[in-house]
């Protein structure tokens, strides 16, 4: 059976007329999908694991999450809260500052850090730029904000949401784990940004050999 024959089975109208009881309420990144290339390279991107939502960097550049930041790159993705009451995020960002130095010339060439704010409404690109002064990100490390719904899509899709809705609603209950991966080789793991800069940096050695 080919595609045409499948459509001609008459199943499609039947399916469309059936009442749909989807329970998921997450807004789909439909608008951005329209601009996506026909065949994104990695299977994860194809399967919606790496949504191509629009974001803005602390350098005030408009970017697409997948096309511009992740595609064919080695990346580390974390979510941060400027007003982190336990001090985990300042520690994480300070560690990343050291890691970018350890990575030397690889930074911005084949390794990129994507730090996404958990408060996109409050944190304008200008606010992020000011925050970035503390950590002095080199080229290759972007602090990112965007439309709240797009940031939320990323947070859930990338697995930074807590299974317990009550805990998830608590903004202070956010993980220090960062997702790291290589889109081209489709290798994805997580490392704690509370571990030492050396531990975090070593992760990247093992990712590309």
């Amino acid at each position: 059976m080919n595609r045409r024959e499948f459509f001609n089975l008459g199943l499609a109208p039947f399916l469309l007329s059936t009442s749909v009881t989807a329970t998921n309420t997450i807004s789909a990144p439909v608008a951005s999908m329209a601009n996506q290339p026909a065949e994104p390279l990695s299977r994860l991107a194809k399967n919606g694991f790496l949504p191509n939502v629009p974001l803005v960097t602390h350098r005030n550049q408009n970017v697409r999450f997948y096309d511009d930041l992740v595609r064919e790159k080695t990346v580390l993705i974390n979510f941060f809260l400027i007003q982190c009451s336990e001090g985990r995020c300042p520690l994480a960002m300070a560690n990343l500052r050291q890691v970018q130095n350890m990575l030397g010339s690889r930074m911005g060439k084949d390794v990129f850090f994507l730090s996404i704010t958990l408060q996109p409404l409050l944190n304008t690109p200008q606010a992020l730029n000011k925050y970035a002064e503390i950590f002095k990100p080199k080229p290759g490390w972007d602090l990112l904000t965007g439309k709240p719904e797009d940031v939320e899509t990323l947070r859930r899709t990338l697995g930074f949401a807590d299974a317990d809705p009550e805990l998830d609603n608590d903004l202070q209950n956010h993980t220090s784990l960062a997702r790291y991966g290589n889109d081209k080789l489709e290798r994805w793991g997580m490392v704690s940004l509370r571990s030492s800069p050396n531990n975090i940096a070593s992760t990247f050695k093992w990712l590309t050999v």
Binding site: R3, F6, L16, T18, S19, T21, A22, N24, A28, G48
Partner: peptide, 29 residues
């Protein structure tokens, strides 16, 4: 049939068979 027809997720999405948000078949009869 879906497999043999080599329908992509995009096709399923268009047909309203796949949830865009979850990437899975909608729970319809």
């Amino acid at each position: 049939q879906i497999t043999q027809a080599k329908l992509t997720r995009r096709d399923l999405l268009k047909m309203g068979m796949l949830s865009a948000a979850t990437g899975m078949l909608l729970p319809m009869s």
